[in-house]
Design a protein around this nucleic acid. Structure first.
Lengths: 331, 331
DNA sequence: GCCATGATTGCAATCGATTGCACACGGTGA
DNA sequence: TCACCGTGTGCAATCGATTGCAATCATGGC
């Protein structure tokens, strides 16, 4: 910076102000300095800047994946979320740090490096940490949570309308003429619980009876999911439609159904949830309720940036929408 | 730090040295200082530290995805790579920054923030940047590339044996009795080219003829891939096995085959490439050549850390291995 | 010509950790 | 007595950018 200052015949202070577009500096001087900086490939030393300003440009993303639900961090849904956040943060010129350690204790978390040296926090999922997150809600560190609206929640939340999503999925199957619709999911995770509520609401609206035998607990992980599904199918239940709580479960379901010599969608129709891109490649193509992860990521980042800048921020409920994928029937 | 120093009755200098485990400090003093720091929730200010030491703990991951090949950055393969690198870097207490901007000009890249303020560089794929990467190879900034061994490559490389992988995939189909094996992929990407070489090598070894009509250019992106595959199948080619260059292409292939009323694997066997976890959920389950992304990520990080610490580092060729997934036949 | 005024710019302190060098200490041998 | 030793600590400078305040400049009004 001294070098640029010498070249421009000004002091370091002026260079600093010029590069920060301070109104205190004459426009002509400013232009000259910027020009010189450019020519001489000068880039500001962010470490020094962050040090001086006692801040960082780093947003930490905390994955609260609930060990009870066993959703792996390699779940495509979470990976897409990470990738989308990465993109959204990059647009705001923020760096991203990812922590896979759920927040289990607000007090000790406050002493962590992450807490002390992040500009803000994006928390993915609430896991078992609802109380801890509430405790952190009014700290000086801005925080936005992606999750499910919860009783007495004090933190800022971006969520999708899981109940509506479950309802849409179920309605789609009803429109296709399904009468005996099963629900595959693990209701110990809050979002799945809401989707289940939507499922029941749709059945009720269509005046279809709710058969508890068709409410099947299917975990997210592969092997367990297949076991649960096979166990259900082995009992030869009367079922002609399945609402699945994730696209991965839907894939498992299709696979198990076909192994049971049931045709999809002719014998049993299946709908997924999440809107992962590979659902367009499954066979048959899988209709799904799209969560628009990218949009959620942008909303999370926008909210967080708002908080960082001291703006008023509202909780957001992102829409879900059904993606219908039809086989392009050939022959 | 001054506070801790006062409590311990020493100077800041001593506290600093103690916390860095300097041998210059007496063990008893060291223990006392560490104890006090712990009790008073003192954590070192990394910004100040990085500033003083003129370094950072940030490794930048540059995605060189080749726009010509149209592999999206949301490709599950890359997302898994990112997630794995994240994990591997975290184990080495390094932060990760991701850049989606391919390096197209070494000179201007040297002036970028990324270049100046990273501890090291992990480059994913070579894209069109082989020459640029070579230019950066002997810079002071440590760099490791994940990609394909290339003529005259001067940078450190971690790669998988794509030729061997292509060969294994093909041999697997040959063992299953396939005689007319097609290759689905886009050879404008170097790794696909190598897999194709492996495919040909396997055919040759098995004394099967290479039929150029069965060498099908299938792009990575969904719609284009389906179009290409359908076009191929519409011509009613004689084919009983398909080696696919990615699991996603394999999914598309299965989907198109079934729409053409061809049974998988009875009429046409399909094998994928990458070893993505959802292949165990496809119907039928998809055998695939596993690249062990996690292992690759660890090798990349290990090599980079080696370079950062000034150690001698070797190029690494990670093994690939076939994952055979069988339908658990029921009924 | 002089001064008040507002617009620019420079001075110098500051952020927190690190580190080269100097110093203190008690003991040793000349 | 004194130079010298090794060990353990403290002093003070340093990294590069920012910013409150003081200094300077140009201008117009008198």
């Amino acid at each position: 910076m001294q070098h640029i200052a010498d070249l421009a015949g000004v002091s370091r202070a002026t260079v600093s102000r010029a590069l920060n577009d301070s109104p205190l500096v004459n426009e002509r001087t400013k232009d000259k300095i910027k020009q010189l900086a450019q020519e001489h490939n000068y880039v500001i030393n962010e470490a020094a800047r962050n040090f001086r300003l006692n801040q960082s440009q780093t947003v930490t993303v905390v994955m609260m994946t609930d060990p009870l639900v066993n959703q792996q961090s390699f779940d495509p849904f979470f990976m897409e979320m990470i990738a989308s956040l990465l993109e959204a943060l990059a647009k705001s010129e923020l760096d991203m740090l990812v922590s896979h350690e759920p927040i289990t204790d607000a007090t000790s978390f406050r002493n962590s490096r992450i807490y002390r040296q992040s500009l803000g926090l994006i928390v993915i999922g609430q896991g078992q940490g609802h109380e801890q997150l509430n405790a952190l809600a009014n700290d000086k560190l801005p925080m936005v949570v992606w999750g499910v609206p919860t009783q007495g929640q004090a933190y800022y939340l971006v969520s999708t309308d899981d109940k509506q999503g479950g309802k849409q999925a179920t309605q789609h199957l009803i429109e296709k003429g399904c009468k005996n619709i099963a629900f595959f999911g693990d209701k110990s995770s809050a979002d799945s619980g809401l989707r289940y509520q939507g499922y029941r609401a749709a059945l009720k609206e269509a005046e279809l009876s709710v058969n508890p035998e068709l409410d099947v607990t299917v975990p997210f992980v592969t092997e367990q999911s297949k076991n649960a599904i096979n166990q259900f199918l082995d009992a030869k239940p009367q079922v002609d439609g399945i609402v699945c709580c994730s696209d991965l479960i839907a894939m498992s379901a299709i696979s198990c159904l076909q192994e049971h010599n049931l045709k999809v969608p002719d014998d049993v129709a299946v709908i997924g949830y999440d809107g992962l891109s590979f659902t367009e490649r499954t066979s048959p193509p899988l209709s799904t309720v799209n969560q628009d992860i990218s949009q959620c990521a942008y909303k999370l980042v926008d909210s967080l940036v708002g908080l960082i800048n001291g703006k008023q921020v509202e909780n957001t409920l992102a829409d879900v929408q059904l993606i219908e994928r039809k086989s392009t029937q050939r022959n």
